[in-house]
Simulated scan of single mutants.
Amino acid sequence: MKTKFLYTCIAAFLFVAHKAQVGIGTSNPSNSAVLELSSTNKGFLMNTVALTSATSAAPFGSNVEGMWVYNTATAGTSPNNVIPGLYYNDGTKWVLMSINNDLPKIGDLKSSMATTDHDGWFLLNGRNISTLPSISQTNAAALGFSTTLPSSSDRILKGKNTSEAVSSTGGSNSFSIAQANLPNVNITGTTASSGAHTHSYTNRGVNYWNYNAGSINTTRTIDTEVRTTAAAGDHSHTISVASGGTNTAITQYPKHLVVQYFIYLGK
């Protein structure tokens, strides 16, 4: 038996050395191929491994340029996390083979008509991250969410400025108008007809003068004074014009379309 096996190995070696091409499923492999597979009802099954990170060679001892594997694990932390798929090694790291340039990255946001978590996308509803799958908890913590996810409910997304932290919340969907917000206009009105006040009047025909014109005594009246009522009637007036308002806050919603916001935390 051992002799037969040895002969088979020698024959195979001599055939490969002579032919320089190997065909599986074909007796006439291409001269341009070292190995050609041929089948109408079978495929090529790539070896499967569980990678730990794009920057780690594990489970291999070192990075080997040109190595191809199919990864079955979801592992690592962004941006070096890995997901199930076909990877090749470029000599320093594992690179996911994909023609899709829009693959989501950990921390990506999207709006959607979907109402529940899906495909590694998690609804931003303020939930505790302990309710997420373990890999998603790890990725959420790496983004700085140590306790809860942010809540996007009833909020408009805003880019941060230099003094704000990512995921901080603020603002209000309503406001009250203060006096400083009003335009500078004069509001006029008329006081009521009642109320004490001063009056000026002219005293007419109350002073009489007697004099003699020759042998005849004569009197005459003259207009003499302009007078004002007594100081007790002197006063000022104030006026107030009621707006009729009740300080009801204004609901500040521009025209909008209601959607849900999701964050990608892996799967």
Score class of each variant (00 low, 15 high):
residue 34 V to Q: 05
residue 209 W to Y: 15
residue 67 M to A: 03
residue 47 N to P: 07
residue 185 V to R: 07
residue 72 T to R: 01
residue 126 G to E: 02
residue 60 F to A: 02
residue 59 P to Y: 00
residue 227 R to K: 15
residue 85 G to L: 01
residue 169 T to V: 15
residue 96 L to Q: 03
residue 84 P to E: 04
residue 182 L to N: 08
residue 233 G to K: 09
residue 56 S to R: 00
residue 47 N to A: 02
residue 29 P to F: 01
residue 256 H to T: 12
residue 163 S to P: 02
residue 65 E to Q: 11
residue 56 S to C: 02
residue 73 A to F: 09
residue 196 A to L: 11
residue 259 V to E: 13
residue 221 T to D: 08
residue 62 S to R: 14
residue 166 V to K: 06
residue 177 I to M: 11
residue 10 I to C: 05
residue 71 N to E: 05
residue 253 Y to N: 15
residue 232 A to V: 09
residue 54 A to N: 09
residue 79 P to T: 06
residue 196 A to H: 14
residue 95 V to N: 08
residue 255 K to W: 11
residue 33 A to R: 13
residue 32 S to D: 12
residue 76 G to P: 04
residue 15 F to K: 09
residue 64 V to N: 12
residue 1 M to A: 10
residue 141 A to Q: 12
residue 206 V to T: 14
residue 193 S to E: 12
residue 1 M to N: 10
residue 171 G to N: 01
residue 95 V to I: 09
residue 75 A to I: 00
residue 247 N to C: 07
residue 148 T to I: 12
residue 236 S to D: 15
residue 201 Y to Q: 11
residue 93 K to C: 00
residue 159 G to P: 07
residue 183 P to I: 03
residue 213 A to V: 14
residue 71 N to L: 06
residue 182 L to Y: 05
residue 113 M to N: 13
residue 110 K to Q: 10
residue 240 S to R: 02
residue 14 L to G: 09
residue 194 S to K: 11
residue 187 I to P: 01
residue 134 S to D: 07
residue 243 S to N: 12
residue 51 L to I: 03
residue 3 T to A: 12
residue 111 S to Y: 15
residue 108 D to Q: 02
residue 110 K to G: 08
residue 152 S to V: 10
